[in-house]
Amino acid sequence: MSNRNTQANKAAARERIRAERERQQKKERLRRQIVVAGAVVGVLAVAGGIGFMVLKANEPTGWEAAKDAKPVAPAHTQGKNGTEILIGDKNAKETLEVFEDIRCPACASFEQSTGEALAKDIKDGRYRVRFSLYTFIDDTPAGGEGSKNALSALGAALNISPEAFLKYKAALYSAKYHPEEQVDTYGKDAELLKVAATVPELKGNKAFETAVTKGTYDRWALDMGALFGRKGVRGTPTFMHDDKKLTIPQVPQQQMTQAQYNQLAQANFRKMIDKEFGPAKGSGKPDPGKGGSAGEKGQNGIREGEKDPTASR
């Protein structure tokens, strides 16, 4: 073999080795680029996931979210966002306004002693009742969510029927279930559903139960509670006819049974109602005409379809 061929073969071999080395280096660089790119994508994906979780964590929930929810008014309501609850004979000439808070112990005492008398007057068509239900006790040092939560559940009951609403309200106020003012029992849906199971119209009613657990009427409850202070009312229970605040005579502070107390409380409620509206039909007493004040504008309560000029604060 000549020296020339030997040198040529060696040069060719070196060129092959160099080309192979460059090919392997390019392959390694490409591999590293792919690994780095994958790592960057992974980091971005993790960062994006963390950002999404932080965003979700910062989204309002519960009653904060309810403030921005679309208003859903129960059936059997009227007025702006359904905040007027008028129950009774549409032909009744008078409207009694009742202001309550479900956590209010005095409201519970009234319902337990006198609620049946009020319900009878509604049934007899003596007057209609506009219920203004507030939630201010949740904002007192007692704290909690029971007033709002119970009011939302009452909205679900009202959506079923006015009768279901009245029976459920009475059950929530009952001596068996109504909690102490400082105890936020009604902040729990399970407790509200337990009480509802005692109301025939609500027991096993899936539509009602779903509305309670999903908070369908949470925004409505907030809108109702926002009317606190309407007509200057800052305490519960309060009774009004037009712009006139009515006062129930107090039961004497003396030792008596619960039955005796209830009898006196009902009698005092009757005195207040008779003084304002005149004796009930069939009472045997002379009818002196419509009792009480009709207000400065001669209004006899808020009639269906009429605008309540005091509704806004």
Rank of each mutant, 00 (worst) to 15 (best):
R219P: 01
K245M: 14
T247A: 11
V183R: 10
G278C: 03
Y127E: 08
A37M: 11
K167H: 02
V251K: 08
R128D: 04
D184I: 07
I102S: 10
I17Y: 07
T114R: 12
E201I: 02
E84Y: 08
G143D: 06
L193S: 08
K290V: 07
E181I: 15
Q24L: 14
G292P: 06
K90H: 09
L222D: 04
G115L: 09
I160N: 10
K206N: 06
A75P: 01
T310Q: 12
E180P: 00
S147G: 11
T140A: 06
A73C: 06
A175Q: 14
Q299I: 03
G229M: 09
E180G: 13
C104P: 02
R303L: 09
V36N: 02
K231H: 03
A164I: 06
A13T: 11
I87G: 04
G144C: 08
G115A: 05
L166T: 14
V35Y: 13
C104T: 04
G295S: 06
G143C: 01
Y261C: 05
D287C: 02
F269N: 04
G88M: 10
N268P: 03
K271F: 00
S109Y: 03
D218Y: 02
L154W: 02
W63C: 05
A142T: 07
D308N: 13
E111P: 03
Q253E: 15
T77H: 05
A65E: 11
K285S: 10
I50T: 05
T61P: 01
K169G: 07
G88F: 10
W220A: 05
Y134Q: 05
E191W: 02
G51Q: 13
P71C: 12
C104D: 05
Y173S: 14
K297S: 13
T61I: 09
E22L: 15
P179Y: 08
N91L: 03
L44N: 08
Q260T: 09
D184W: 06
R21G: 00
K194Y: 06
P237C: 09
V98D: 02
G204M: 09
G278Q: 05
A197P: 02
R14M: 11
D308E: 05
C107A: 08
K285C: 03
A12P: 03
K231V: 09
G88R: 05
N3G: 01
L44A: 15
E59Y: 02
E191D: 15
G204V: 10
M256F: 05
R126D: 13
L44Q: 04
A47Y: 08
F208D: 05
A47Q: 06
P141I: 11
K281H: 03
V212Q: 06
P288C: 04
K285G: 03
S283F: 09
K120T: 13
G62M: 10
